[in-house]
Amino acid sequence: MTVKKYWYRLVCLCLLALPLAATLHAEEQRAGMPVRIGLTPVFLDHQVAFNNEWKLYLEKHLGHPVIFIQRGSYREIAELLHDGKLDFAWLSGYPYVRNKDDLQLVAVPLYKRKPLYQSYIIVPASDKKTRTIQDLRGKSFAFADPDSNSGYLYIVYLLSKQGENPSTFFSRTFFAWSHVNVIEAVASGLAQGGAVDGYVWDTLVLTHPELTARNRILNRSPQFGSAPFVAGRAVSKAQLTQFQQVLVDMLHDKNGHNLLEQLNLNGFVYADEHLYDAIEQMSRFVEERKQ
């Protein structure tokens, strides 16, 4: 072996080793890096004690520190995810379908043993007259969030479908920035109607019946794909898989099961993007109407 050859081999080896070293280095670095998870009001996200418990659970099973990040609207979480400032987020199906190219589907919650949920249109319990959506004409209405499927998209789609212009159908609309707030807004009489996540409503019926009792459900939507956990494009396959596994395995772990019970869920499952076809369809319909 000549010296020249030897050098060539060495350089080649080094060149070959570089990506490996880089990968190893990245893994090493990531070990100390926290996993950043964005939360939105697709569930009762303001229960601090529960969030801490869940955070500890995830930290234990992921082997990384976990940071929960909450913002005032879905859009802010979606933007953080887009900008790579979040690794994962529990988002509504609506922003998922709109930003599908930027996002990777991680897992979907099982509610009533299905990865599906509904949107409820609610009115105050004191309002005995309102029977259909049409009866809400000229009244004030509370949406949850402009990026919420159950709390915005569905009712807009429904009205558009009925040939109504959602921006003029109601006398006054506003966003309450969470499903719980919508329920409170309708219960207090601030809004004469509101659109909420059926899963959140049902959970509140169990935990805060005095609040839900002040409202009644006027309309239940067809079933849609539940709000999914998504990952940003920057998240590696390995990371995604690990997180996915931790979520899905919650069902098989005592603590995880306990947490799921508090969430009023049956577990998390892998899901196919076609689960959100109905939402995508509605989204497209509404977008077309706007133009």
Binding site: S126, S140, S171, R172, G189, L190, A191, Q192
Partner: peptide
Amino acid sequence: YASTKPELFPMQ
């Protein structure tokens, strides 16, 4: 615009 008694004082 808003009130703490929305039933008595509805918006608008």
